[in-house]
Simulated scan of single mutants.
Amino acid sequence: MTKPAFIITIDTEGDNLWQKHDSISTENALYLPRFQALCEKYGFKPVYLTNYEMAVDTRYVEFAKDVIRRDAGEIGMHLHAWYSPPDAPLTADDWRFKPYLIEYPEDIIRGKVDYMTKLLEDTFETKMLSHRAGRWAFNEYYASLLREYGYQVDCSVTPHVNWASSPGNPAGKGGTDYRRFPQQAYFMDPDDISRAGKSTLLQVPMSIHLKHSAFMNSVKQGYDALRGKKRSPSVNWLRPHGGNVEKMKRVAAQSLAQGHDYVEFMLHSSEFMPGGSPTFKDEQEIETLYRDLEQLFSWLSERTVGLTLAEYYQRKVK
Protein backbone atom coordinates (compact mmCIF):
# COMPACT_ATOMS: atom_id res chain seq x y z
CA MET A 1 0.00 0.00 0.00
CA THR A 2 1.33 3.45 -0.95
CA LYS A 3 1.96 5.69 2.03
CA PRO A 4 0.21 9.08 2.08
CA ALA A 5 2.40 12.06 1.20
CA PHE A 6 3.64 14.62 3.68
CA ILE A 7 3.91 17.92 1.81
CA ILE A 8 5.78 20.77 3.48
CA THR A 9 5.03 24.21 2.05
CA ILE A 10 6.93 27.32 3.13
CA ASP A 11 5.72 30.77 2.07
CA THR A 12 9.19 32.17 1.45
CA GLU A 13 8.98 35.91 1.87
CA GLY A 14 10.38 38.95 3.70
CA ASP A 15 10.69 39.51 7.43
CA ASN A 16 7.58 40.29 9.48
CA LEU A 17 5.30 41.40 6.66
CA TRP A 18 2.43 41.45 9.18
CA GLN A 19 3.82 44.64 10.75
CA LYS A 20 6.07 46.30 8.18
CA HIS A 21 4.33 48.74 5.88
CA ASP A 22 7.12 50.68 4.21
CA SER A 23 10.13 48.43 3.62
CA ILE A 24 11.19 44.80 3.27
CA SER A 25 14.18 42.97 4.73
CA THR A 26 15.11 39.35 4.09
CA GLU A 27 17.31 38.33 7.02
CA ASN A 28 15.23 35.17 7.47
CA ALA A 29 17.13 33.66 4.53
CA LEU A 30 19.93 32.97 7.02
CA TYR A 31 17.63 30.80 9.17
CA LEU A 32 16.43 28.39 6.49
CA PRO A 33 19.38 25.94 6.53
CA ARG A 34 18.48 24.76 10.03
CA PHE A 35 14.93 23.94 8.94
CA GLN A 36 16.18 22.27 5.76
CA ALA A 37 18.50 20.07 7.82
CA LEU A 38 15.58 19.00 10.04
CA CYS A 39 13.51 18.07 6.99
CA GLU A 40 16.35 16.03 5.54
CA LYS A 41 16.84 14.22 8.85
CA TYR A 42 13.39 12.68 8.36
CA GLY A 43 13.55 12.33 4.58
CA PHE A 44 11.14 15.21 3.90
CA LYS A 45 11.46 17.63 0.98
CA PRO A 46 10.09 21.13 1.57
CA VAL A 47 8.57 23.33 -1.12
CA TYR A 48 9.82 26.93 -0.85
CA LEU A 49 7.09 29.04 -2.47
CA THR A 50 9.23 32.04 -3.27
CA ASN A 51 8.29 35.70 -3.32
CA TYR A 52 9.96 38.54 -5.24
CA GLU A 53 12.16 39.92 -2.46
CA MET A 54 13.59 36.48 -1.69
CA ALA A 55 14.21 35.70 -5.36
CA VAL A 56 16.58 38.68 -5.54
CA ASP A 57 18.32 37.98 -2.22
CA THR A 58 21.72 36.44 -3.02
CA ARG A 59 21.83 34.49 0.25
CA TYR A 60 18.50 32.84 -0.42
CA VAL A 61 19.35 32.20 -4.06
CA GLU A 62 22.52 30.35 -3.05
CA PHE A 63 20.59 28.28 -0.49
CA ALA A 64 17.78 27.44 -2.92
CA LYS A 65 20.11 26.48 -5.75
CA ASP A 66 21.79 24.02 -3.41
CA VAL A 67 18.40 22.53 -2.49
CA ILE A 68 17.59 22.10 -6.19
CA ARG A 69 21.02 20.68 -7.02
CA ARG A 70 20.70 18.00 -4.34
CA ASP A 71 17.03 17.26 -5.14
CA ALA A 72 16.32 18.02 -1.48
CA GLY A 73 13.24 20.15 -2.10
CA GLU A 74 11.38 22.27 -4.63
CA ILE A 75 11.19 25.97 -5.48
CA GLY A 76 7.75 27.28 -6.41
CA MET A 77 6.13 30.68 -6.90
CA HIS A 78 4.41 32.96 -4.37
CA LEU A 79 3.22 36.44 -5.27
CA HIS A 80 2.39 39.47 -3.14
CA ALA A 81 0.86 41.88 -5.60
CA TRP A 82 1.41 45.16 -3.81
CA TYR A 83 5.16 45.24 -4.42
CA SER A 84 5.90 42.51 -6.95
CA PRO A 85 6.90 44.05 -10.31
CA PRO A 86 5.72 45.54 -12.54
CA ASP A 87 4.69 48.43 -10.32
CA ALA A 88 0.98 49.29 -10.66
CA PRO A 89 -0.51 51.13 -7.64
CA LEU A 90 -4.09 50.14 -6.91
CA THR A 91 -4.90 52.03 -3.68
CA ALA A 92 -3.79 55.19 -1.93
CA ASP A 93 -1.20 53.12 -0.04
CA ASP A 94 -0.65 49.58 -1.34
CA TRP A 95 2.01 48.87 1.29
CA ARG A 96 -0.52 49.58 4.01
CA PHE A 97 -3.58 47.88 2.48
CA LYS A 98 -1.78 44.97 0.77
CA PRO A 99 -4.37 44.46 -1.99
CA TYR A 100 -4.96 40.99 -3.36
CA LEU A 101 -3.63 40.18 -6.82
CA ILE A 102 -7.14 39.22 -7.94
CA GLU A 103 -8.29 42.80 -7.22
CA TYR A 104 -6.07 44.25 -9.97
CA PRO A 105 -7.08 44.61 -13.65
CA GLU A 106 -6.48 41.43 -15.65
CA ASP A 107 -3.62 42.91 -17.67
CA ILE A 108 -1.79 43.79 -14.44
CA ILE A 109 -2.41 40.32 -13.00
CA ARG A 110 -0.94 38.79 -16.16
CA GLY A 111 2.07 41.11 -16.04
CA LYS A 112 2.88 40.21 -12.45
CA VAL A 113 2.50 36.45 -13.01
CA ASP A 114 4.65 36.72 -16.14
CA TYR A 115 7.38 38.68 -14.36
CA MET A 116 7.58 36.42 -11.31
CA THR A 117 7.52 33.21 -13.31
CA LYS A 118 10.33 34.34 -15.61
CA LEU A 119 12.38 35.75 -12.72
CA LEU A 120 12.22 32.48 -10.80
CA GLU A 121 12.89 30.28 -13.83
CA ASP A 122 15.83 32.42 -14.96
CA THR A 123 17.29 32.64 -11.46
CA PHE A 124 16.99 28.98 -10.52
CA GLU A 125 17.25 27.50 -14.03
CA THR A 126 14.29 25.21 -13.45
CA LYS A 127 10.66 25.17 -14.55
CA MET A 128 8.18 26.57 -12.03
CA LEU A 129 5.51 23.93 -11.44
CA SER A 130 3.99 24.83 -8.06
CA HIS A 131 2.33 27.97 -6.76
CA ARG A 132 0.50 29.55 -3.84
CA ALA A 133 -1.34 32.85 -4.07
CA GLY A 134 -0.34 35.70 -1.80
CA ARG A 135 -2.81 36.11 1.05
CA TRP A 136 -4.59 32.96 -0.19
CA ALA A 137 -6.59 34.92 -2.81
CA PHE A 138 -7.41 32.91 -5.93
CA ASN A 139 -9.96 32.92 -8.76
CA GLU A 140 -10.69 31.42 -12.17
CA TYR A 141 -8.65 33.98 -14.14
CA TYR A 142 -5.62 33.49 -11.90
CA ALA A 143 -5.94 29.71 -12.37
CA SER A 144 -6.11 30.13 -16.15
CA LEU A 145 -2.82 32.06 -16.10
CA LEU A 146 -1.12 29.35 -14.08
CA ARG A 147 -2.19 26.77 -16.66
CA GLU A 148 -0.99 29.01 -19.48
CA TYR A 149 2.44 29.41 -17.88
CA GLY A 150 2.84 25.68 -17.35
CA TYR A 151 2.16 25.34 -13.63
CA GLN A 152 0.91 21.94 -12.54
CA VAL A 153 -0.08 22.52 -8.90
CA ASP A 154 -1.69 25.24 -6.84
CA CYS A 155 -2.08 25.07 -3.05
CA SER A 156 -4.02 28.26 -2.28
CA VAL A 157 -7.28 26.69 -1.07
CA THR A 158 -7.89 26.81 2.70
CA PRO A 159 -10.98 24.63 3.35
CA HIS A 160 -13.64 26.06 5.70
CA VAL A 161 -11.99 29.49 5.72
CA ASN A 162 -13.67 32.63 4.42
CA TRP A 163 -11.20 35.46 3.78
CA ALA A 164 -13.92 37.93 2.73
CA SER A 165 -13.63 39.70 6.10
CA SER A 166 -9.89 40.23 5.53
CA PRO A 167 -9.69 43.40 3.42
CA GLY A 168 -7.20 44.16 0.70
CA ASN A 169 -8.29 47.09 -1.42
CA PRO A 170 -10.60 49.08 0.91
CA ALA A 171 -13.02 49.42 -2.01
CA GLY A 172 -12.93 45.66 -2.69
CA LYS A 173 -14.81 42.63 -1.42
CA GLY A 174 -12.03 41.03 0.61
CA GLY A 175 -10.41 37.66 0.01
CA THR A 176 -11.67 34.33 -1.32
CA ASP A 177 -14.39 32.35 0.44
CA TYR A 178 -13.27 28.69 0.60
CA ARG A 179 -16.03 27.34 2.83
CA ARG A 180 -17.56 25.21 0.07
CA PHE A 181 -14.34 24.04 -1.55
CA PRO A 182 -13.14 20.41 -1.44
CA GLN A 183 -10.77 19.28 1.31
CA GLN A 184 -8.89 16.74 -0.82
CA ALA A 185 -6.76 17.24 -3.93
CA TYR A 186 -8.66 17.73 -7.19
CA PHE A 187 -8.12 18.91 -10.75
CA MET A 188 -9.92 22.23 -10.92
CA ASP A 189 -12.87 23.03 -13.16
CA PRO A 190 -11.72 25.93 -15.39
CA ASP A 191 -15.12 27.62 -15.01
CA ASP A 192 -15.53 27.07 -11.27
CA ILE A 193 -12.43 26.47 -9.18
CA SER A 194 -14.56 25.35 -6.22
CA ARG A 195 -15.29 22.02 -7.93
CA ALA A 196 -13.43 19.24 -9.68
CA GLY A 197 -13.17 19.38 -13.46
CA LYS A 198 -10.98 18.58 -16.41
CA SER A 199 -8.25 21.21 -16.26
CA THR A 200 -4.58 20.31 -15.97
CA LEU A 201 -4.17 22.31 -12.73
CA LEU A 202 -4.15 20.19 -9.59
CA GLN A 203 -5.36 21.88 -6.42
CA VAL A 204 -3.81 20.61 -3.18
CA PRO A 205 -5.80 22.26 -0.36
CA MET A 206 -4.23 22.93 3.01
CA SER A 207 -4.85 20.39 5.78
CA ILE A 208 -7.46 22.21 7.86
CA HIS A 209 -10.27 20.74 9.96
CA LEU A 210 -13.17 22.15 11.94
CA LYS A 211 -12.63 22.51 15.68
CA HIS A 212 -16.29 21.90 16.52
CA SER A 213 -19.26 19.93 15.25
CA ALA A 214 -21.39 21.25 12.41
CA PHE A 215 -24.16 22.07 14.91
CA MET A 216 -21.86 24.03 17.22
CA ASN A 217 -20.37 25.91 14.28
CA SER A 218 -23.86 26.88 13.06
CA VAL A 219 -24.72 28.18 16.53
CA LYS A 220 -21.50 30.19 16.76
CA GLN A 221 -21.91 31.66 13.27
CA GLY A 222 -25.53 32.49 13.93
CA TYR A 223 -24.52 34.36 17.06
CA ASP A 224 -21.81 36.22 15.15
CA ALA A 225 -24.30 37.13 12.42
CA LEU A 226 -26.62 38.67 15.00
CA ARG A 227 -23.69 40.80 16.14
CA GLY A 228 -23.00 41.86 12.55
CA LYS A 229 -19.76 39.88 12.29
CA LYS A 230 -18.76 37.64 9.40
CA ARG A 231 -16.44 34.92 10.61
CA SER A 232 -15.28 31.57 9.34
CA PRO A 233 -15.93 28.49 11.46
CA SER A 234 -13.24 27.79 14.06
CA VAL A 235 -10.57 25.57 12.52
CA ASN A 236 -7.25 23.88 13.24
CA TRP A 237 -4.45 24.02 10.66
CA LEU A 238 -1.42 21.81 10.16
CA ARG A 239 0.60 24.86 11.05
CA PRO A 240 2.71 25.63 14.15
CA HIS A 241 1.95 28.55 16.44
CA GLY A 242 3.96 27.50 19.46
CA GLY A 243 3.16 24.59 21.77
CA ASN A 244 0.45 23.12 19.51
CA VAL A 245 2.15 19.91 18.43
CA GLU A 246 -0.70 17.70 19.68
CA LYS A 247 -3.27 19.75 17.76
CA MET A 248 -1.15 19.43 14.61
CA LYS A 249 -0.99 15.68 15.09
CA ARG A 250 -4.79 15.58 15.42
CA VAL A 251 -5.21 17.51 12.17
CA ALA A 252 -2.90 15.09 10.38
CA ALA A 253 -4.52 12.06 11.99
CA GLN A 254 -7.99 13.28 11.02
CA SER A 255 -6.90 13.76 7.40
CA LEU A 256 -5.44 10.27 7.26
CA ALA A 257 -8.48 8.74 8.97
CA GLN A 258 -10.70 10.36 6.33
CA GLY A 259 -8.69 8.67 3.60
CA HIS A 260 -6.72 11.67 2.37
CA ASP A 261 -3.63 10.62 0.42
CA TYR A 262 -1.60 13.56 1.72
CA VAL A 263 -1.25 15.97 4.62
CA GLU A 264 -0.03 19.50 3.97
CA PHE A 265 1.94 21.65 6.40
CA MET A 266 2.70 25.34 6.03
CA LEU A 267 4.73 28.06 7.68
CA HIS A 268 6.32 31.34 6.60
CA SER A 269 10.08 31.50 6.16
CA SER A 270 10.21 34.51 8.49
CA GLU A 271 8.75 32.40 11.30
CA PHE A 272 12.04 30.53 11.62
CA MET A 273 13.76 33.77 12.70
CA PRO A 274 13.44 35.29 16.18
CA GLY A 275 11.34 38.41 15.78
CA GLY A 276 10.60 37.62 12.15
CA SER A 277 6.89 37.25 12.90
CA PRO A 278 4.38 38.09 15.64
CA THR A 279 4.20 34.37 16.49
CA PHE A 280 7.83 33.58 17.38
CA LYS A 281 9.25 36.68 19.00
CA ASP A 282 12.54 35.48 20.49
CA GLU A 283 15.05 32.63 20.53
CA GLN A 284 13.18 30.77 23.27
CA GLU A 285 10.01 30.65 21.16
CA ILE A 286 12.04 29.48 18.15
CA GLU A 287 13.42 26.62 20.23
CA THR A 288 9.84 25.70 21.21
CA LEU A 289 8.96 25.71 17.53
CA TYR A 290 11.79 23.32 16.72
CA ARG A 291 10.87 20.98 19.58
CA ASP A 292 7.34 20.84 18.18
CA LEU A 293 8.62 20.26 14.66
CA GLU A 294 10.91 17.47 15.84
CA GLN A 295 7.99 15.68 17.51
CA LEU A 296 5.63 16.22 14.58
CA PHE A 297 8.13 15.14 11.94
CA SER A 298 9.13 12.06 13.92
CA TRP A 299 5.47 11.07 14.29
CA LEU A 300 4.69 11.69 10.61
CA SER A 301 7.80 9.86 9.38
CA GLU A 302 6.19 6.59 10.52
CA ARG A 303 2.92 7.31 8.69
CA THR A 304 3.81 9.23 5.53
CA VAL A 305 6.44 9.70 2.85
CA GLY A 306 7.90 13.11 2.06
CA LEU A 307 7.00 14.48 -1.39
CA THR A 308 7.23 17.88 -3.03
CA LEU A 309 4.14 19.30 -4.71
CA ALA A 310 5.56 18.42 -8.14
CA GLU A 311 6.27 14.86 -7.01
CA TYR A 312 2.77 14.55 -5.58
CA TYR A 313 1.38 15.73 -8.94
CA GLN A 314 3.26 12.94 -10.71
CA ARG A 315 1.72 10.45 -8.31
CA LYS A 316 -1.76 11.74 -9.16
CA VAL A 317 -1.33 11.55 -12.95
CA LYS A 318 0.17 8.06 -13.09
Rank of each mutant, 00 (worst) to 15 (best):
T2W: 12
K3L: 15
P4I: 10
F6K: 04
I8A: 09
D11H: 07
T12N: 03
L17P: 01
W18K: 04
K20G: 00
H21T: 14
I24N: 00
S25Q: 10
N28I: 00
P33R: 06
F35S: 07
G43I: 06
F44R: 06
K45E: 09
P46C: 09
L49T: 07
N51S: 13
E53V: 05
A55I: 02
V56W: 07
V56A: 04
T58N: 01
Y60D: 03
V61L: 01
D66K: 14
I68R: 04
I68P: 04
R69A: 15
D71I: 00
G73P: 00
G76Y: 00
M77S: 10
P85I: 06
P86T: 03
D87W: 12
A92W: 10
D93F: 09
D93I: 13
D94C: 09
W95K: 01
P105A: 11
P105D: 14
E106P: 04
D107F: 00
K112E: 07
V113R: 03
T117G: 09
L119C: 11
F124H: 00
H131G: 02
G134S: 04
R135V: 13
A137M: 05
N139Q: 05
N139L: 02
Y141W: 05
A143V: 06
Y149H: 12
V157F: 02
P159V: 06
H160R: 02
N162K: 06
W163G: 11
S166M: 12
P167I: 10
P167S: 05
G168H: 08
N169Q: 05
G172Q: 06
K173T: 15
G174K: 08
T176R: 11
Q184K: 15
A185D: 15
Y186P: 08
Y186W: 05
D189S: 08
D191W: 10
D191C: 07
D191L: 14
S194E: 08
M206R: 11
K211S: 10
H212K: 11
M216I: 15
Q221D: 10
G222E: 05
G222N: 08
D224F: 09
G228H: 06
K229V: 11
S232Q: 08
S232E: 04
S234P: 01
L238K: 06
H241F: 15
G243H: 02
G243N: 02
K247A: 13
R250N: 13
V251S: 10
Q258I: 00
H268Y: 05
H268S: 12
P274C: 01
S277F: 02
E287T: 09
L293P: 00
L300P: 02
S301T: 04
R303S: 08
R303K: 15
T304G: 03
L307C: 12
K316R: 15
